[in-house]
Amino acid sequence: MTVETIAVGQEDPCRGRTMRFRDNVSGYDIRVATPNRSPGLWHRYLAGARDAYRHFGNETTLDYDGVLDGASTALFFAATDSHDRVVGGLRVQGPYIWVSEVGSLTPWAGRPGAADLGLMMARRIPRGVVESRAAWVARDAPRRDDLAAAISRCMAHAPRILGARYGFATVASFTTGRHSASGGVQAQSIPPVPYPDERYRTLPIWWDTRTYHVFADKLQYLLMRGELRTMGLAEPRSRRPHRLPGHGGEECYAYGR
């Protein structure tokens, strides 16, 4: 099986130009940009996010007014269809300097796992932590599941683009399968929390740019390698070592310590 990614641009979003690639599985173009350099695309991405979050009654978690000016967003990913309609994306914060900057840790305050999660963050910040937030996919997008998988791969790409070692996100428990496929690993011993309400179980996920290829599914890993090449970024190691029997999970590779 051959997996090919079509190159449609290789610019650096942090220098004011749009980086982009096409996902041949979902068929969508994915652009990587900054709000100040691509304000039109930013506002279209954010409007789509607001509609998606509003549909599920979660609009307050988006903090639309607070992020509208783009100041807290280091870069964002926007998936577009053949008509240039934004049909999904996410935004990225960081790299963080202080644990107190990570507002998504707040739902664990006063709950089991809060201290351990804060310690995980504190240990990683010196090596670089960026966080993916406000991920969404349009409900009417064709091949929606494939697009959702591509958005999860963007979470793995974000730290590499921004020169950080770790990617972080807090996600609904029913999405962990696709994040695991892109190399994300659930933080060990951190119980999920009912956030933003009792309908959800939210948990923390880490991507380590040095080891996520060990955990990623083969197809997703091949897609990520192609996307990284298209964006002109260094690829993860091609060798995929096996996890030791009886020692699976993040703690074997320092994800959860």
Rank of each mutant, 00 (worst) to 15 (best):
E101G: 00
V92A: 01
A74N: 06
L90D: 01
D116E: 06
E101R: 04
R111T: 02
P112Q: 02
D69H: 10
A52G: 12
S72M: 11
E101C: 00
V92W: 10
Y64I: 10
W98E: 12
Y64N: 12
W98Q: 07
D51K: 13
G113D: 01
T106V: 10
T80W: 07
D63T: 15
D81C: 07
D63A: 15
D84K: 13
H83I: 05
A71D: 10
A79G: 14
D81M: 10
H55Y: 11
T80G: 03
F77L: 11
A115K: 10
R85T: 15
A79I: 07
D65V: 10
R91V: 01
H55V: 12
A115G: 01
L68N: 13
R91T: 05
D51C: 10
S82Q: 15
A115L: 06
W108K: 02
V86C: 15
Y64G: 14
G94M: 07
D116Q: 11
T80Q: 15
G103I: 00
A79T: 11
T106P: 00
S100V: 02
L62Y: 03
A109E: 11
Q93W: 03
V102L: 04
A79F: 07
D116S: 08
P95D: 07
V99L: 03
T80K: 10
G113N: 08
A52E: 03
D69V: 13
A114M: 03
S82V: 14
V102G: 03
L62D: 08
D81R: 03
L90C: 13
A71K: 15
T60N: 13
V87R: 07
R54Y: 02
A109Y: 06
G66P: 11
Y96L: 05
V92T: 09
V99T: 08
R85H: 12
A71G: 08
A115C: 01
D63H: 15
Y53C: 09
T73N: 06
Y64D: 06
G57F: 09
G113R: 12
G57T: 14
Q93M: 12
A74D: 07
W108M: 02
D81F: 02
V102N: 04
V86P: 10
Y96V: 04
N58S: 04
V86A: 08
R91D: 02
G113E: 02
G110D: 01
D84S: 13
L75G: 02
A52I: 05
L105I: 05
G88V: 06
R111C: 00
F56G: 11
S82A: 14
G89F: 09
L62Q: 09
